[in-house]
Write a protein that binds this DNA or RNA. Structure first.
Length: 646
DNA sequence: GTTTCGGTTCTTTTT
DNA sequence: GAACCGAAAC
């Protein structure tokens, strides 16, 4: 019943990859060459061939990519793709660990710690050891080191020594904090993001019977963005695919931009050696951008010599050259963009056709102000993740504690909401309760009540009955109801008194409660919430959604997306490439790839913004050098515009 | 000893 | 903003 005309829908490069025979396949897909299309059709092709979709695994790096591909595949073969395993590495690891985590000594209701939780825990540990404040790295820096060690399977000691090379940091202290961090996570029955991956791998390595089951189960494995896999992920896939060897990976080493979290594009380069008999396909025909933009992209990436050679072939007709816009400073940059946007609007572009991309969130500060002043709608993928905002985490803390009574972090957060209770008091009570607090159980609830200060006891009285009602009203399968009652009985009043922007926060909370209805257990909801990014929140949360407007985004978050018109902010040395990354000493290869990703997002027009000066905090100015990535592009490929002093 | 509050400083990239 | 620091208040 083949009702898909593969030959008509795909070009010859894509068709070859889609209909590739069984065995290892490597698809090198340059930007805009129909990578998603190819993967989607590959899924459809397999299903049409009679493969049971439940035995196909599709791994992606973002939830968005997973959803997009599943939706598109469904469009092709209808309900036929139902049951396909699709999602991020973290999701898949979580799915397996929820079944088999007990083999590694976890209780199956373990909590997933997000960045914010990990940070609190590390801070608390450093504080207890008197390491906070003075010459000791901040929690985020420590977590970066721990994470890199985990994702590259290297000892923390070595990674820390390399990272703090010429700084007087006591490496032994760093290792001690790490050990304590590991122990505390165990105690509270929690895993951070890296633990999900590491334990996912450990599960396969240490438990042959589990591995064998999944090896047998998955007939076909497809991996998207393979250039961004780290050692752990690559090994995990290798184990899983070992038996059937029907592994198809897609990627582009030019777009590898996650080495700072352990990604190693050598995984993709060495794939043919690791899998003898690999068939390699190259997709180089670019449908997205006009030839002038591709010429700039090709010229830019030529600065990175040691990569797979490939170049983007244009099919669209000639158009305009990308523009380098010289402006005075950040404010003028914002003014120029606003003016240009108005022009584009007159030309018939809608606001959804335009994106502004930048290296770091704070680069867009002036622009945000200017857009707001001009009442031009914009959507921003902000720095703070939706699910990590204080009010969102607050309202979930009760549910978290109920689901996992060992969740120290949830307990401390929840108690911190009570008057006269702060971090210290909460930690003391937690210790007095023996590192566990089950408020579903009347004895547990009483034990807690007795230890609270009088002022807190009054407030707590409003919350406590929800714990008792949990079993009685069978709230276990209704996470939203727990949050709803918590807000109604206690948090709403607290929020009014605490936040000056109560209304906005209340909207978020309502959207969150709405969001929970799609989950059948508290634990499923909590896992999902930790693993979703704010990008997903934007599309998943009804109240957040329906926005349309100019997109403001970091280049990292823009990966895989495209717009008709793209502005790149601050194309100057020190901003893009960022000075921090240059100081890391790893060269500028990754920043160049990032610049390449930015340029290849544009379909019709590309603007590289180049302010002459940066205002410093003390009111002075600092002159900026044009970005080395722009200087490397032959001038004949670009058009200059001098805005001068507005 | 802790909490709370007000002022100051500083922003890389993310599952 | 939000994390951090210091000082007042409990």
């Amino acid at each position: 019943m083949s009702n898909i005309d593969f030959e008509k829908a795909l070009n010859s490069e894509q068709l070859a990859a889609v209909t590739a025979p069984d065995g290892p396949v490597l698809v090198i897909a340059a930007a805009g060459t129909g990578k998603t299309r190819t993967l989607t059709y590959r899924v459809a092709y397999l299903v049409e061939k009679g493969v049971d979709p439940r035995r196909v695994l599709l791994l992606t790096f973002t939830n968005r990519a997973a959803r997009e591909m599943l939706e598109r595949a469904q469009g092709l073969v209808g309900e036929g793709v139902g049951g396909l395993w699709g999602g991020t590495f973290h999701h898949m690891a979580n799915r397996m660990l929820r079944r088999h985590g007990d083999l590694l000594g976890y209780k199956l209701d373990y909590t997933i710690l997000d960045q914010d939780d990990s940070r609190s825990l590390v801070r608390a540990i450093a504080d207890e050891r008197g390491l906070l404040g003075k010459h000791f790295p901040k929690p985020d820096v420590l977590l970066g080191v721990f994470g890199l060690a985990a994702n590259t399977s290297k000892p923390v000691h070595d990674v820390a020594a390399a990272h703090f090379e010429d700084h007087p940091i006591n490496i032994e202290d760093v290792v001690k904090v790490w050990k304590a961090y590991e122990a505390r996570k165990r105690q509270l029955n929690g895993m951070d993001f890296d633990d999900l991956l590491c334990n996912g791998l450990k599960l396969f390595r240490d438990h042959q019977e589990v591995l064998a089951k999944y090896q047998e189960h998955f007939q076909y494995i497809l991996v998207d963005e393979y250039q961004d896999t780290n050692t752990i992920q690559a090994s995990w896939v290798d184990l899983l695919a070992e038996k059937k060897r029907n592994l198809l990976v897609v990627g582009d080493d030019f777009q590898s931009i996650y080495s700072w979290r352990g990604a190693d594009f050598r995984n993709i380069l060495s794939f043919p050696q690791r899998y003898p008999g690999t068939v390699v396909f190259k997709l180089e025909t670019n449908y997205r951008s006009v030839p002038e933009i591709l010429a700039v992209a090709n010229a830019c990436i030529a600065g990175n010599p040691e990569q797979f050679q490939k170049s983007l072939r244009a099919v669209r007709p000639a158009s305009k050259k990308p523009k380098v816009v010289h402006v005075r400073a950040g404010e003028e940059q914002a003014l120029y963009i606003v003016q240009k946007i108005k022009e584009l609007r007159r030309k018939g572009y809608t606001m959804n056709d335009v994106a502004v991309l930048y290296r770091a969130h704070f680069h867009a500060m002036e622009l945000q102000l200017e857009l707001a002043r001009e009442r031009i709608p914009f959507v921003i993928t902000s720095g703070v993740r939706f699910f990590e905002q204080a009010h969102i985490k607050d309202v979930c803390s009760l549910l978290r504690l109920i689901v996992n009574p060992g969740d120290e972090l949830a307990f401390i957060r929840l108690m911190g909401l009570m008057p006269k209770v702060g971090e210290k008091t909460a930690a003391k009570i937690w210790a007095a309760l023996g590192g566990r607090c089950d408020i579903k159980d009347a004895t547990g609830a009483r034990a807690l009540r007795e230890k609270l200060p009088a002022a807190a006891r009054v407030e707590w009285a409003k919350v406590e009955p929800i714990g008792a009602a949990y079993e009685k009203d069978s709230l276990a399968d209704d996470p939203g109801e727990v949050i709803f009652r918590f807000v109604k009985e206690f948090y709403d009043e607290y929020a009014v008194e605490t936040f000056e922007n109560y209304d906005r926060r209340k909207e978020d909370i309502d959207a969150l409660i709405d969001f929970t209805t799609r989950f059948e257990t508290g634990e499923a909801f909590l896992s999902e919430m930790s693993l979703l990014t704010n990008l997903d929140a934007e599309t998943d949360m009804p109240a957040q959604g329906q926005e349309s407007g100019i997109k403001l985004s970091t280049v990292h978050q823009a990966k895989g997306l495209e717009w008709n018109v793209v502005f790149v902010l601050w194309a100057v040395d020190g901003m893009f490439p960022s000075s921090r990354s240059l100081n890391e000493g790893a060269g500028d290869g990754e920043e160049r790839r990032l610049f390449y990703v930015a340029a290849t997002r544009a379909k019709d027009e590309l603007f590289l913004m180049m302010p002459e000066v940066r205002r410093t905090r003390d009111g002075g100015v600092m002159f900026c050098e044009p970005s080395r990535f722009v200087r490397e592009i032959p001038v004949s490929l670009l058009e200059d515009e001098n805005v001068g002093f507005i």
